[in-house]
């Protein structure tokens, strides 16, 4: 499962994720990270059963923790199920079922936004 961490500027400079990994022994995978002048965000992936432990520890350390849900916003009225999104997604979020209907495994999404540009019908957006 994925957690979306928002980190304020003053907290940003500390190696928080390494600290939590060492303390808990849970293997955390950093999938995306972004830092700007005022704050930063990090998208991490971790085993589902460790969520509570990791979340509460990160919160204690001053990180705002949100579970990443409904990452891909999908407009079914605009979508024509062409499949332009299938091959460009690095996470293989999109696939067809046996009847060529679009299946979205949004739990795989790492918010890269590639599909937003690739969709000819502007049917996809990413939750900010």
């Amino acid at each position: 499962m994925k957690l979306f961490l928002t980190i304020q500027r003053d907290v940003l400079k500390r190696p928080l994720i390494s600290q939590v990994v060492l303390e808990t022994g849970v293997l955390i995978n950093v999938e995306r990270a972004h830092i700007d002048a005022n704050e930063g965000w990090v998208l991490i992936d971790l085993p589902e059963k460790e969520e509570t432990r990791i979340s509460s520890r990160l919160t204690e350390l001053g990180v705002e923790v949100k579970k990443l849900e409904n990452a891909v916003l999908y407009d079914e009225h605009e979508c024509v199920e062409c499949g332009a999104c299938l091959s460009i997604c690095p996470q293989e979020v999109f696939s067809f079922d046996a009847d060529y209907h679009l299946v979205i495994k949004e739990e795989r999404c790492v918010l890269c936004g590639q599909c937003v540009c690739a969709c000819p019908h502007q049917a996809l957006s990413i939750r900010q």
């Binding site: 024509v80 062409c82 499949g83 999104c85 299938l86 091959s87 460009i88 009847d99 060529y100 000819p120």
Partner: peptide, 23 residues
């Protein structure tokens, strides 16, 4: 099928037209 072999490597495919709508 969703992927095609090119130089020994499987490359994923995307359709620009909609097969479900063609149906």
């Amino acid at each position: 099928s969703g992927q095609v072999e090119i130089d020994g490597e499987m490359v994923r495919t995307s359709s620009m037209s909609s097969y479900s709508r063609a149906r």
